[in-house]
């Protein structure tokens, strides 16, 4: 009688498959789904009227306005920088390029608290140029300019690190063709480069904006927590939470959580529909 032949499996048995999927879903459920659900549940725990009051009272409104203002400065600043840096890095060959890219990525490896600390040590009362600023009555730290600077620092690499690999992949041939056909430098940029990078740029802006509006650690160090004046939304959440006003804290937090969800959906759509026009890491 011939021995019974058994084949080694090239895929897992259905039982193991289901087990692995469930295990992974439990991890996702506890660490990602429940935290979002709890934010919205707590926010509406005292009814819609309380929710509305918490997000429309003057201090909350001031915090929302400041957050929008800070993002409206930080994001465009980093877009201009990101486009300039990626133009220089992707379209030209020069010595020290990879070192420059490392420096641009640097803010991602610095703790948010240190990102705030460095500006206090620069511009604070005892800071490097603090006394000079005091003499001239210029307030940077514990005021809006400090919050903007700290936000610019933590969101510094987002646009650049999206555009650099994208533009490196695209190369410089199309721009060189445009130039040889007589286009000026700016015409080349607006009509050739920008249409090629628009989805990647949008992707970078999306991530940059989410971080700019949500940054907590760095902004916390430089803000001085002056209610109604230097409080951004995340800082307002902290103050309400420390006052044990949980429903109000979660109400303001729910706006930020909503922004995060919108960002994720928009990011997902971009990856799905325009994935081939994003940086190579996304395709």
């Amino acid at each position: 009688m011939a021995p019974k032949r058994t084949f080694a499996p090239i895929a897992e048995s259905p039982k193991i498959r289901i087990g692995l999927v469930l295990l992974s879903l439990i991890y996702i459920l506890f660490f990602l789904v429940l935290p979002v659900v709890v934010v919205f549940t707590e926010a509406f725990s005292r009814g819609f009227a309380h929710y509305l009051e918490a997000v429309t009272e003057p201090d909350a409104q001031a915090a929302i306005k400041l957050t929008l203002l800070v993002a409206a400065i930080a994001v465009p600043a980093n877009v201009v920088f990101g486009v300039a840096a990626s133009w220089a890095i992707a379209k030209f060959d020069f010595v020290g390029k990879s070192f420059l890219i490392t420096l641009i990525d640097l803010p991602f490896s610095v703790s948010p608290v240190i990102s705030g600390l460095i500006y206090v040590l620069m511009f604070g009362g005892q800071g490097l140029i603090g006394p000079w600023l005091d003499e001239h009555d210029i307030q940077i730290v514990y005021a809006v300019p400090g919050i903007v600077l700290a936000t610019v620092f933590v969101t510094f690499p987002f646009v650049a690190r999206e555009l650099i690999p994208l533009m490196q992949e695209q190369g410089a041939e199309e721009e060189e063709a445009a130039r040889s056909l007589g286009a000026s430098g700016w015409q080349t940029f607006w009509r050739v480069t920008l249409p090629n990078i628009k989805w990647g740029l949008l992707y970078g802006v999306l991530l940059c904006n989410a971080r700019a509006m949500g940054e907590f650690g760095a902004v916390s160090v430089v803000s001085g927590h002056i209610r109604g004046f230097t409080n951004t939304m995340p800082l307002h959440v902290e103050i309400l939470y420390n006052e044990y006003n949980l429903p109000a804290a979660f109400a303001v937090a729910s706006l930020l959580a909503f922004l995060a969800l919108v960002t994720l959906v928009a990011k997902g759509i971009l990856e799905l529909r325009y994935g081939h026009e994003l940086a190579p890491v996304h395709h």
Partner: peptide, 17 residues
């Protein structure tokens, strides 16, 4: 899509949640 939530959700919100 949800895997990237910790990149998008402000840390203070994650903290209190």
């Amino acid at each position: 899509g949800l895997v990237d939530l910790p990149f998008a959700l402000p840390t203070a919100v994650a903290g209190i949640a």
